[in-house]
Design a protein around this nucleic acid. Structure first.
Lengths: 248, 248
DNA sequence: AATAAGTTTTCAATATCTCGAATATTTTGA
DNA sequence: TCAAAATATTCGAGATATTGAAAACTTATT
């Protein structure tokens, strides 16, 4: 169930490494950066060069990606079936609350972030699209769990380990079920430092085009608490707006 | 010497397929799009989902990439060691000539396009960064060949097949050598339908930050011919500008 | 509601990639 | 300039992914 195809992962990790390093790398630097033997990295780099995804910079042996990956990524996003419609709603929610806004959905036994609009404060919850979070300790994950019927919920809870990630994590099934019940009643779900210390998340279900997603607001507990009720109300408005979008 | 690591290629081809298809694909559609057995595609898709690079859209079984790839690609380009400086020069050249401008370099036994600024005409030479062109039948390739000393040139010509791609391709070594000599004398190199029928390219060496690159102008033969001298002169100005940039 | 057509998933033999070690090359430092 | 260190490349045994085939599941059609 975990990542399977090693080379696929490595290929993407190589690009991520360039994104982090912010400069051309030699073969061995790249190998070190992605934790791969130099000899294996050698073949990968040769392949990517052959394909025009990376090129050798200058006269030395360093390589760097061409714009090709950006080009592919832009073509993909240009035609994204979803995000075009939802982006304005998320940005308004961010502007009204000042906190980071996230759109996410279930992916396997986790949650994947589809879109992140970062908050306006210097201290803010920071995340990237594509990040994976646990079902039991993220606000969006609780939305997902709460949407399951009893049978599916029991099976899912049995399968996923309720790993204690912080002292506040609800690692106990009964506590988690009570928390889900609270959320169902309120219409939104909350985490208080259960996944990252000091972070509060609140999330509500949203179904743009009929697709089951969730929208979340996240920031430092202290600041979020001060505006808890206003933020919650604003979040629910955004969730309703999203659900009205895109007949798809 | 050709592409070696199969999965690396497939991974990128999968993303390219989404860029082309412009919509979510089922597993078998994706497999068909990239010419891979469904069973193999299955593992690849599972891996990419695990990594947050793709997610399942809607309730059906279609998948589409998240913004994660774009995020990585943007981080890479944000810190591109080269393109920040050269882009304005290329764009001015494009604006002054109306034709497509390309920055390229040698990569193995081919040429890779690093940057493309497309022309302003409806009918124009269209290309993408990362495309690979032959050394012997592209204007940039001729710049590369002409920069080699006799020993390296002989070895390279022996290694690469002078494939006849169009009727106009210089598939004969003597003819190609004479053409290179002409180019050296003029200071720039020309192709006339040698790689793509109806396309004329002209290229000159440029060395921003000391790195051996080439800048090219490409468009329909008929239109390029009408402004041949002016374009050539303008191209050489741009090449000089580029070579003065970026101490690196 | 049943059948057919298409799609996804699993499986184990096989083709391919991976990795450490050895070799070759380049860079660094004196 | 030479020696030492670092880096890149090659190679074969072993680890891993790939594949067609078959089973399980969905969706479309009658």
């Amino acid at each position: 169930m975990n990542a399977k195809v090693r080379t696929a992962v490595r290929t993407l990790e190589a690009f991520e490494a360039f994104g982090r390093s912010q400069k051309p790398l030699t073969l061995s630097e790249l190998a070190r950066a992605i934790g791969v033997p130099v000899s294996s990295c050698h073949g990968l780099v040769a392949t990517l060069r052959n394909r025009g995804y990376i090129y050798s910079v200058g006269n030395n042996r360093r390589v760097y990606p061409t714009r090709r990956l950006l080009d592919v990524a832009e073509a993909i996003v240009r035609n994204d079936p979803l995000l075009e419609f939802v982006e304005p709603v998320l940005t308004r929610l961010r502007d009204d609350t000042g906190e980071t806004v996230i759109l996410g959905t279930r992916e396997g036994d986790g949650v994947v972030y589809l879109e992140v609009v970062e908050g306006l404060h210097t201290i803010r919850y920071s995340a990237k699209p594509g990040e994976i979070k646990p079902l039991h300790s993220s606000a969006i994950g609780k939305v997902v769990l709460a949407s399951l019927d009893e049978g599916a919920l029991a099976k899912t809870l049995a399968r996923i380990a309720l790993e204690r990630i912080t002292p506040a994590t609800l690692a106990d099934e009964d506590a988690l079920r009570r928390d889900l019940e609270d959320g169902r009643r309120r219409g939104f779900f909350v985490t208080r430092g259960e996944n990252v210390a000091d972070v509060m998340g609140m999330a509500a279900p949203a179904a743009p085009g009929g697709q089951a997603l969730a929208v979340a607001l996240a920031g430092p507990i202290e600041r979020m608490d001060r505006s808890f009720d206003a933020h919650a109300e604003r979040l629910l408005v955004a969730a309703r707006e999203l659900s009205g979008l895109g007949a798809d």
